[in-house]
């Protein structure tokens, strides 16, 4: 019961924060200079990790799909199938998981620290709105940097797949030639949409969790943890719903099959 109440409260709070974010953005209150600063700070720090993760995710999928396709006797589809599965699903989900750990947890820890050391209260008392001054630029920075990192990560997964396929003795050239036969424009649109939605989720969740942290060092730790968990669950949910919407659209309009 308490679990459900907490969930409702969290979701409600996040929707209110999102409302305020959109409203303030349309009022032109975003300090873009600060956003760009933050993007560099968050984005550059996370780039290395994203590259490593992308490489390995691509390699894992290439390897696993190769083994499985051999079982079913369809290994000629390897390049396309592993790239397509990675781009549409496994890639965005796994890389978003890591980014929620890196970017999300970093943001929630930073905001949580500001809350428990009363920096946010000080801003309130000095006559500024902490949501406008602190949260708004961070939401934009996290959205933009997560989105860009996800796109970079997804590109690297392709590279990872190609490199690894060479390593396990599949001809890299035929692997690459196979990619455009299965990866449709629709799939690329879907993975870009997913990247953007995941970035937005990570931004809202981590800012909300940091903003509502209470109670000293323990409170900051709790905020980070619950931020990471909420992010992961929401990513899995929205991943499913976006895939479902895409498949409904495909059935309705017969798009996506090349």
């Amino acid at each position: 019961m308490e679990y459900i109440l907490n969930l409702t409260k969290t979701l409600g709070g996040m929707i209110l924060l999102a409302e305020k974010w959109i409203k303030l953005t349309f009022q032109g209150k975003t300090r873009w200079g600060f956003v760009i600063d933050q993007i560099f700070q968050v984005g550059v720090k996370s780039l290395g990790m994203t590259l490593i993760a992308g490489m390995f995710v691509g390699a894992i999928m290439a390897l696993q799909i190769d083994v499985q396709l051999k079982d079913f006797g369809a290994e000629s589809f390897l390049g396309g199938l592993s790239t397509s599965t990675t781009l549409r699903n496994v890639g965005p989900v796994l890389i978003a998981f890591l980014l929620s750990g890196k970017v999300g947890a970093y943001t929630s820890a930073e905001l949580g620290t500001m809350e428990v050391t009363e920096q946010l209260n000080a801003i309130r008392l000095l006559g500024a709105d902490p949501v406008e001054y602190i949260i708004l630029p961070r939401i934009w920075a996290v959205i933009i940097s997560s989105f860009l990192l996800l796109i970079v990560g997804l590109m690297v997964t392709i590279l990872g797949g190609v490199l690894f396929s060479q390593f396990i003795g599949v001809n890299a050239l035929s692997y690459i030639q196979n990619i455009p036969r299965i990866v449709t424009g629709w799939s690329i649109v879907l993975s870009v949409v997913k990247s953007f939605v995941f970035g937005t989720l990570i931004a809202i969740v981590s800012c909300y969790k940091g903003y509502t942290a209470r109670g000293g060092a323990v409170g900051v730790g709790t905020a980070v943890q619950s931020c990471a968990v909420t992010n992961l669950i929401l990513i899995i949910f929205t991943d499913f719903f976006l895939s479902m919407i895409s498949s409904l659209l495909q059935e309705l309009f017969q798009v996506g099959y090349l």
């Binding site: 890591l98 970093y106 929630s108 820890a109 930073e110 620290t113 060092a217 980070v224 943890q225 990471a228």
Partner: peptide, 17 residues
């Protein structure tokens, strides 16, 4: 408290990776 947040973040990132 900043260091605790940092440790928690690093723990999630490094173990996920």
């Amino acid at each position: 408290s900043a260091a605790v947040g940092e440790a928690a973040t690093q723990a999630v990132v490094r173990s996920s990776l």
